[in-house]
Amino acid sequence: MTTFRLVTPISEEQVRKMNVNDILYITGTIVTARDQAHKRALQFHEEGKSLPLNLEGLAVFHCGPIVKKEREEWKIVAAGPTTSTRMDIFEDQFIKNFKTRVIIGKGGMGKRTTEAMQKYGAIYGAFTGGAAVLAARAITRVKKVEWFDLGMPEALWILGVKEFGPLTVAIDSHGNNLFEDVRSKTEENQKLIYKKLGLIK
């Protein structure tokens, strides 16, 4: 288990050095994106339109933050991760087209995303579900908000972060998926527990 402290933009080479169970802290820029933002970004790509910012080497955060405006400035109140599996249907194309190197969320992602991460060089960093104050503290400022018409939780919040983490590398760029490993182990354990309790022979 190694701890990495990386500054964006993050290169493919840096991502390839990480393995599942490693810990990552990110300084630089991360961008929130949920279902609607993923959908629109891929639509833009298809139509040949450019995105409001270049996502290459940045981290995308599955998060619908609570944000308030103080004087003329946006302030993040709480910014915990949302369940990532909802983005599974978009993420492979997203990684391929925009060269995002880190995806941050909770609960893990599936086979499609794992394969894309291996192919194009990206990792999934699990942030503790519900740890919204910890996340907000690492966000130094809201740099910009784009696609605000999608609503506060769905907009692209471009965030300046300092030591954002700890992120547990749960999918690496070598085809490993920690959540999948735990799930299959859990199913084996289930049978052992049945046996121990005499629920099956």
Binding site: G108, T168, L178, V182, K185, T186, N189, I193, K196
Partner: peptide, 14 residues
């Protein structure tokens, strides 16, 4: 004891 033998662990990371 039984459910803690599942190995799911904190946040499902084992």
């Amino acid at each position: 004891e039984a459910v803690n033998q599942t190995g799911i662990g904190p946040m499902g990371l084992g």
